[in-house]
Computed example of a mutant assay.
Amino acid sequence: MYTKKSILLLLLISLSIPIFSQERILYVDSFKSILGNEKKEIKLLNFAKENNFSSLILYELDKIDKKLFHLADNTKNSVLVDFMVKARKFYGIKEIAASGESGGFFVDEIAPYNAGRTDPNEKFDVYNLEYEYWKYDSSNLGGYYCESYLRKNGIPCNREGSYNYYKESLSIMELLAEESDTKIKTEAYLGNFKSSEINKISKHTDRILISGYANTPENSFTVVKKLIKLIANCECKPEVSVIFSSEVEYMKGYLNYHSLDVIEEKFINEMKKNNLYNKVNLVGFTYYNYSYLEDAVENETFRRTGIRK
């Protein structure tokens, strides 16, 4: 027979367990300035562990390759190797993603880095494509993608040309993943897409990160509702992670007052209300980005506990 004390203990334990067990992914901005700085590395990894992040997406790998050391140079890349091993062995990080803008980056830099390592703990196990083909200004004449990738490769500078380049990059990443001697996921960041596009994109990806940039979880759901419906009706069923932005113009203010658990629960409740929760393979949430989120979480913790780290 349960006593009052044992019932209270069971209740406290149940309240301490998250209602939803989705995974959390963290975009790590300014990684070039973090890597090799032990104090900054530990601060990042402690933050990830304390807030139940299981995956990291590393930005600025191209800058590291151009300005610090060639990623595949085993005489110089030990600082990256050490970071990845430390993250996995001591801080509960299960996945580390390399983020890039084109398939060529993974061919030239990331796949050679992985090929030079034998321990799976030292390798990237997610290839993340960060290329916003749906943005008119970037893909058209004079835009960043047009001038950096499309025009010089004889590809039309418009949405169709940019989408085809994006899809080709995913195909390259998928092939590299298949050729690897360790398991690698491919994932794609998407802010907008058509039904015909998601059907083809999802065939080349294990996970899709959907931009839910807004100032509250309810508004984030409104932003992604149409896209989630398209995924629910697509031919393939990729894993889905919704992105919340902790930038000032988006959810920074809300994050100052609400925990990550509360925000995620509110979003999932919106999905359930709209009968979409069981129609897609929602595996969790992605937060953009570390710098803004760290500050917001510190503010929320201080308001709740009176303790500031």
Rank of each mutant, 00 (worst) to 15 (best):
E147V: 05
L68I: 07
E109F: 14
E300Y: 04
F106S: 07
G253Y: 15
H204N: 09
I93N: 08
L227D: 14
L58H: 02
L141T: 06
S16M: 04
K309T: 14
R117V: 01
F193N: 00
K183E: 14
V79Y: 07
T286H: 06
E132R: 10
A177N: 03
E160I: 09
N121M: 11
E160G: 00
V85M: 06
Y149E: 06
E218D: 06
K185S: 02
F285T: 01
V242S: 08
V248P: 05
K167F: 13
F83I: 02
F285S: 03
S33W: 04
L190S: 04
V262K: 14
V223G: 09
Y287A: 05
E239A: 00
Y250D: 02
D206V: 00
L71V: 09
P238C: 01
T75Y: 08
Y133Q: 06
M173D: 05
D181N: 15
R159V: 00
V224R: 11
E101W: 15
L227G: 00
T305S: 15
L45S: 04
I228M: 12
L68P: 01
T305P: 08
K252E: 13
M84V: 03
T118L: 10
K32L: 14
Y163L: 05
F285Q: 05
R151W: 11
D137I: 09
D82Y: 12
N281C: 01
T182N: 07
S14Y: 08
V283W: 00
G143T: 04
G212P: 08
A48D: 12
S169H: 13
N51W: 13
K309H: 10
P217V: 07
F244S: 02
E179A: 04
I93C: 04
I198G: 03
P156W: 13
F90Y: 14
K89N: 13
